[in-house]
Design a protein around this nucleic acid. Structure first.
Length: 469
DNA sequence: CTATGGCACGGATT
DNA sequence: AATCCGTGCCATAG
């Protein structure tokens, strides 16, 4: 695209360069890898450099991922680029299967479900449809889109959508892909068929289909009357439902932060933060930024020198390729530099968050960061958008989390509710927060609570009657 | 009367 | 310029 302007209009080249850098910045490593792949295939003047050296000890990173060079107590994080296959970072092992509803952070929900239903998917079209449907789930694991829409959009018969959807709904977090919370509950209820007496299941079904409102409002008296049960029996029934069913299949369980399949899709993170050696008191943070081939390309030196030696070769397609390669290399270099500085600064300012979790998140805006780095805010926005990073804990979070001002407070709200003995009202929670030095309006507490999937105080059972925690 | 959620406004952020 | 977020006000449910 730029090849036609090779009569070195410097300004045009400069703007092209800038635009290119911007696009590169906003690409994730996977996208960039694909792009570089085609560039390398079509342009012999471009050459990749795959041997990178540890900035500390100088040895090759390929065989010697260098967290071990980290010095205990060093405040400066070590930030370097590396090809994913040479990285020290390993995706967190998919551990704890203690809770059936808990999708691990490593296996995302989508991947987890897809694995289960894959054998039952006959055609590639069905597989693609399954991926599509899983991608359309909202953060609670419900499918807001109607099957008819999905069928139309994917150009497959409605029956096909229904078949795949049924598979999804009966896979492990059962009820996933239901249209409404009630439907999710009903699907889960079916799954309990062989483990509980049919009569109880039938009563539960009736309560869910016809008296969802009474159930939601914990009005045991009215519920009992409607179903011909005593108040106590109705309460038991509600307990049974609460213990065994989950209206929001994607939420691990009540009160736990929602897993958002859309954000942490199954693709690998773009960077990982590790703890250096000497992990005890003050570990140094080691940041690995994953980039195709370590992220470094250059102009093939032979072609460059040959071109310099022969002025007559200018304006040949060959020269254009070299020029194009030059620009690409420079853009990439710039992207890498920006990204490295950005992550370096993030690692410094959000060190406590990285080490100790949400509670220690410091408020930070893209604008502040832009000022410190001496770049435009939009540069930061581009660099941050759509990228994810793995924390030492194994969690993979969007880079945007580093700028979430309310994360710390939300975490405190979660802790306060988890520790309460008797249900606290939003005002009580606000007061406790104020006592802890955080002054926010009652209305805001309410919003945070809702975000965390925590029910209002009057619908919350006393701590003793609560499942888990 | 109290606790909560909806709506909308203004200021900050992107 | 568009969007997001915290907040105040008000209606409603218990």
């Amino acid at each position: 695209m730029f090849r036609h302007h090779l009569s070195a209009d410097l300004r045009q080249q400069a703007t092209a360069h800038l635009a290119q850098t911007m696009t590169f910045l906003h690409m994730t490593n996977a996208e960039l890898e694909a792009r570089l792949h085609t560039e390398l295939a079509h342009n012999p003047a471009l050459e990749m450099l795959d041997s990178r050296h540890c900035p500390e000890c100088g040895r090759k990173l390929a065989r010697h991922p260098c967290p071990h060079c980290a010095r205990a107590g060093a405040d400066e994080p070590l930030v370097y680029f590396t090809a994913p296959e040479h990285a020290h970072y390993r995706p967190a092992p998919s551990d704890d299967s203690r809770d059936a509803y808990e999708p691990t952070a490593a296996d995302t929900l989508e991947g987890y479900v897809l694995q289960q239903i894959a054998p039952a998917l006959a055609t590639p079209a069905e597989r693609q449809l399954a991926v599509y449907l899983l991608g359309q789930l909202d953060e609670d694991g419900l499918l807001t889109e109607s099957p008819a829409e999905a069928a139309w959009f994917n150009r497959v018969p409605l029956a096909c959508v229904e078949r795949v959807l049924a598979l999804i709904q009966h896979a492990d977090p059962p009820g996933l892909g239901a249209a409404t919370p009630t439907q999710a509950l009903l699907i889960q209820l079916e799954g309990l068929r062989d483990r509980h007496p049919p009569a109880r299941l039938e009563t539960a079904r009736a309560a869910l289909t016809r008296h969802a409102d009474l159930l939601a409002h914990r009005d045991w008296g009215a519920l009992g009357r409607a179903l011909g049960l005593t108040r106590l029996q109705a309460e038991r029934l509600a307990g049974f439902i609460q213990r065994n069913l989950n209206p929001y299949p994607a939420r691990a369980f009540w009160g736990r932060e929602a897993v958002r399949p859309a954000e942490s899709a199954w693709r690998a993170p773009d960077a990982a933060i590790l703890l250096g050696d000497g992990a005890s008191a003050r570990p140094q943070l080691v940041v690995e930024i994953f980039a195709a081939w370590g992220g470094f390309v250059r102009v093939q030196p032979l072609m460059q020198t040959a071109l310099d030696a022969d002025p007559a070769a200018r304006h040949t397609p060959w020269a254009q390729q070299v020029e194009h390669a030059q620009m690409l290399a420079r853009c990439l270099q710039q992207r890498n530099a920006t990204l490295r500085r950005l992550l370096h600064l993030l690692a410094v300012t959000q060190r406590d968050f990285i080490l100790h979790g949400d509670r220690h998140m410091k408020p930070l805006t893209r604008a502040q960061l832009a000022r410190q780095l001496g770049v435009h805010e939009s540069t930061i926005s581009r660099a941050v958008a759509g990228k994810t990073v793995a924390l030492p804990s194994g969690r993979v979070v969007p880079l945007a989390h580093f700028f979430d001002r309310s994360l710390s407070v939300r975490d405190q709200v979660k802790a306060i509710v988890a520790a309460e003995t008797t249900p606290l009202t939003d005002d009580d929670i606000a007061a406790q927060l104020a006592a802890a030095g955080v002054t926010i309006a009652r209305r805001t507490v309410s919003k945070y609570r809702a975000m965390l999937g925590i029910l209002p105080a009057h619908l919350r059972a006393p701590a003793s009657a609560r499942p888990n925690v």
